[in-house]
Design a binder for these strands. Sequence first.
DNA 1: GTAAAAAAGATAAAAAAGGTCTTTAAGGGA
DNA 2: TCCCTTAAAGACCTTTTTTATCTTTTTTAC
Lengths: 135, 135
Amino acid sequence: MELTRKGEYAIRGIVYLAKQPVGKVVLVSDVADATGVSQTFLAKIFQSFAKLGLVNSFRGTGGGFLLGRPAAKITLRQVVEAVEGPIMPNRCLSGEGMCTREAECMVHPIWRKIQGEVSSILDSVTLEDLAKEKK
Amino acid sequence: MELTRKGEYAIRGIVYLAKQPVGKVVLVSDVADATGVSQTFLAKIFQSFAKLGLVNSFRGTGGGFLLGRPAAKITLRQVVEAVEGPIMPNRCLSGEGMCTREAECMVHPIWRKIQGEVSSILDSVTLEDLAKEKK
DNA sequence: GTAAAAAAGATAAAAAAGGTCTTTAAGGGA
DNA sequence: TCCCTTAAAGACCTTTTTTATCTTTTTTAC
Ligand code: SF4
Ligand code: SF4
């Protein structure tokens, strides 16, 4: 029930991107320095983001990363799921037939409810919200 | 963000206990058979329960386990936390000073909210609820 | 005393987490 | 064209956690 470091770093990294002026391209090394994350590890994380279109990347001189769409259009859930996989408090939520006890199980619906609540909270937060300064 | 097998087995095991007639002592081997869990693994889990008073145990002939208090007084949260530790979606929730960024962090409060929601859902379910037959 | 059962602790295989390193591809500028 | 810069891709590695099993000890009823 705990976010991994990968997930934590992913959030730090993309929030840093969201804090940049729109259109500014930043090096992964800069993000790594600013967030206190190993550069190579963060690079891997950003690759996952790029595959999903959460960020755009440019190679070569003057290259780097920027958000793939406006910060307001990227939710915290999308960021977390990009690196951690689907929000899933218990294995039996991944599909039918995962557990033969499901038909009589009184616990299964509880996990579904938790999944729904957590997903909904994470969906309600965007990078725009997270990029603001705390007041 | 996923319940371990230990947590899953813990719930299955103690729910089985909750389904027994009040006061009935059952062998860990019976619970293991009924829930499809390895007996030795389940025994370990029940030891954790016993330490916290969630179950009572008796050794020797005629020994076994039963609930430590009425099913209505044992919440799903207590069961899960007994084997998985505190509900904690991110490390920084475990105490002050875990993360130097916390003061300016906009994400931290989100994790706290999730922690609160999940805890509250798990608190609202008792073994009495889980022991009922599904209708 | 003996058999039954949980308690306790040591051990270990398998999986996941948490990275690093090397090579390749792409882009910009001299 | 030839460097230099930077991300992409994938192989590789170490540590920690999960998921157990096995053995020995303690307690209890008969
Ligand atoms: S017993 Fe219930 S909660 Fe557990 S895995 Fe099966 S369906 Fe899910
Ligand atoms: S940066 Fe924020 S969310 Fe991440 S560990 Fe620190 S306080 Fe928690």
